[in-house]
Design a protein around this nucleic acid. Structure first.
Lengths: 121, 121
DNA sequence: TTGCCATTTCGCCAAATATCGAAATGGTAT
DNA sequence: ATACCATTTCGATATTTGGCGAAATGGCAA
């Protein structure tokens, strides 16, 4: 129960659901998620931490960046199950489609440029 | 998305999840749920309203009582899907078992007596 | 070592939420 | 009609949560 509640609470925020969905196609670094959601880096960092805590997402460091991806095999059953259900229920969601489209643009941008802009302002 | 978020938020509270699970075997009147969760009637009423709003639960009036049951056929897809997943993931949950057991006792009690006690104190 | 810089942590604020008790509601039964 | 009484609504309060900016962190690269 405790475990499942952590998963549900992690998903009880639209921005975190958007993060989860955007990770279906490929992994993303934090600065790319910042760009997608247009939130402060510290805010996104917290959201990712909550998703990680719930076992929905895992991360790896590469150079200066932290990359996020959907949790794999050893994720708790609740996390895997809910990830699958969410993706299924939101297959044709307009917000999801918009995010997917915007993500294509973001992935074309230079990550250095992206980070500089986020830090610079 | 809006619809799904309503469902997830409705489930992002352990007491509401317990209500949902307890309705799998049979319908319950509000005073029986009050007894199960040991919360104030007004609090339970609000929880039920939230579950109803999300399409997870529906209610009917009979005499002085309001009976709650799981939403049926015309419930939104997200609600049906999540109800099924929750039940599956929590099949062997200890809290759920404890609630099921206690519920057996509560169902044996006289509803008039139950309500009198809840109102009387 | 030293500096750089993406990310995280911290401290704060505003908004949302869970809970309660008191008062309102509305259907039953007298 | 009237009174009763389970439930709901309302108002208040305490806790949690989402958000930001500033400062800390920690890994690369010079």
């Amino acid at each position: 129960m405790r475990e499942l509640m952590a998963v549900i609470k992690a998903l009880a925020d639209e921005n975190r659901v958007r993060i989860l969905l955007s990770l279906h196609a490929q992994e993303l670094c934090v600065c790319q998620i910042v760009e997608l959601l247009r939130l402060a880096p510290s805010t996104v960092s917290k959201h990712v931490a909550i998703l990680k805590q719930a076992g929905l997402v895992s991360t790896r460091k590469e150079a200066r960046w932290v990359f996020c991806r959907l949790a794999d095999g050893d994720a708790p059953a609740a996390a895997k199950e809910m990830t699958a259900v969410l993706s299924r229920l939101l297959t044709d969601d307009s917000q999801r489609r918009a995010d997917t489209k915007r993500l294509k643009q973001i992935l074309k941008m230079d990550r250095d440029e992206l980070c500089r802009r986020q830090n610079g302002c």
